[in-house]
Amino acid sequence: MRRRLRYRLGRWRDQGIALGWLVSIWILLWGDVTWGNLLGGLLVGGAVLVFFPLPPVTFGGRLRVGALLAMGAAFAVDLVRASLHVAAVAVRPGPPPRSAIMAVPLRVHTDLNLALTAEVISLVPGTLIIDVDREAAILYVHVLDLDGTGGIEANRERVLAVERGIVRAVGSATELNLVTADRESAP
């Protein structure tokens, strides 16, 4: 009973935050803070949340600031490295580079992990999420210049390293064990 009440309160809190953001965006779009814009934003935001509900995203972990900073630094390095690589591919004469679409099954099957990993991967130049299998937690990733980035296994490990960094930063202890055990059992 107590757990169900906590879930409902958390869901209402999340809906309230989403409504606040939608109203803020509505007011920014109109460019003027008036009672009419506030009321219109509440009506439109409420309708969006009622008619287009988002699935609940649970957060079972905790925020680890050190791991979050390490993930951010690794992302920045990867962003610069990939930007330079894509720029070199763009100006290099000759035939176009060999690209590939590969399936990468993630180890942690939560919507939050799936969404965050897909976002980080898509932000890096040269990689793009083509499709997501939510049930099986598989990301389908397009990789530009497969040979120049180390091949399929190197790119798959890169995606799994992003997942590992995200789980270390915001995952639960169980999720952390999944990505750590998988890393230790790899040859």
Rank of each mutant, 00 (worst) to 15 (best):
L38Q: 05
A100F: 02
P97D: 08
V143D: 05
V65E: 09
G46D: 04
L128T: 02
D78R: 14
F51L: 15
I129S: 01
D111W: 13
A87I: 08
P56R: 13
A181I: 06
R13A: 15
L29E: 10
I121D: 02
Y7Q: 13
L69R: 14
A136D: 10
V57S: 04
G16Y: 00
S83N: 10
G41W: 02
Q15I: 13
G10N: 12
G150A: 01
L112T: 03
E119R: 08
L43H: 10
V162G: 03
P97R: 11
V120D: 04
P97N: 06
P96Q: 13
E119P: 07
P93K: 07
L68E: 02
V80N: 04
A18S: 12
L69D: 07
R8M: 13
R158M: 14
V57I: 11
R156S: 06
A169K: 01
A87C: 05
A181H: 08
A82G: 03
S185D: 11
W12L: 15
P93M: 01
I129P: 00
I101C: 06
V143Y: 01
T127N: 08
E157N: 14
E184V: 15
M1R: 15
F59H: 14
L28G: 01
E157K: 11
V44G: 02
V89K: 03
W35D: 03
